[in-house]
């Protein structure tokens, strides 16, 4: 496959970025998108051009590190996959592919296609955990009976890998799908219910302070989420937040 790539280049956080066009030849349809980017970078280095910086780690669709806004969609046109699991067979010979970083005020560009997603870490640190007494008399988790339905829902929410596709996709750059998944995975379990009030209040407060937008229920985040996190989690977070606010 011969392709034309239009890629966002930005030297650093302060520099003004621009779209650059690079042709690439002989792309195998079996390559992953990141492998294609590796080939492009080798080509660029051969030409004495600075390679394109992009995030990646496990390349197995489970770490949440890769990002990229490809042809107007987070993680590209495929569904329920991250960019590393997107394959070139999804494109056609002669295509022009536009590649941009995830864009949000809370995700500033570091360089080229890499963005700083530490705002997610700060939201998580604000309450996305269960405080555990490590004095030696902690109860065995398996001794606490949990309804299968709740356990499944909590597990589904915990599948969120925090990649930020929800924010990148949302027209308002809202992080509510991410935050609601983290709130839900604990709120549904007895171990998490103890701190449920503080958790939701603190995480939403941090989310707002980071500058994410409001949810307008377009549902785009759910469609683009590589892990299929449901909007049901946002409704649950809204309930938890309302209850926590009124409880005071």
């Amino acid at each position: 496959m011969n392709l034309t790539l239009k890629v966002w280049r930005q030297a650093n956080a302060e520099a003004k970025g621009r779209m650059e066009t690079y042709p690439i030849a002989d792309v195998s349809p079996d390559m992953s998108f990141l492998e294609m980017m590796d080939v492009l970078n080798e080509q660029l280095m051969g030409q004495g051009i600075d390679p394109i910086a992009f995030d990646h780690d496990c390349r197995e669709g489970i770490c949440g590190m890769c990002s990229m806004f490809i042809n107007g969609e987070a993680h590209g046109p495929d569904r329920l996959v991250t960019t590393c699991q997107l394959h070139m067979r999804k494109f056609n010979d002669g295509d022009t592919i536009t590649i941009e970083p995830f864009r949000a005020k809370a995700f500033p560009v570091i360089k080229d296609l890499t963005v700083d997603r530490s705002s997610f870490d700060r939201v998580q640190q604000a309450g996305g955990f269960v405080s555990v007494n490590t004095s030696g008399n902690t109860q065995d988790a398996n001794s606490i009976p949990i309804d299968k339905h709740d356990a499944d829902k909590a597990f589904d929410a915990a599948a969120c890998i925090g990649c930020g596709a929800c924010v990148a996709t949302c027209k308002n750059a809202s992080a509510m799908l991410f935050v609601s998944a983290k709130v839900s995975q604990y709120a549904l379990l007895p171990q998490g219910k103890v701190e449920a009030t503080d958790r939701v209040m603190n995480m939403v407060k941090q989310m707002d302070e980071e500058g994410f937008g409001n949810c307008t229920n377009t549902g785009a985040c759910e469609v683009e989420c590589p892990k299929g996190i449901s909007l049901e989690n946002i409704a649950r977070m809204n309930r938890e937040y309302l209850y926590a606010s009124l409880k005071g």
Partner: peptide
């Protein structure tokens, strides 16, 4: 507030791929 949450806009944004026009 929502417009302020994305300062730099995308060159290509396919909104119709994942959400209805009305929403």
């Amino acid at each position: 507030q929502n417009r302020k949450s994305r300062v730099v806009q995308y060159n290509m944004y396919k909104g119709s791929a994942n959400a209805s026009w009305v929403s």
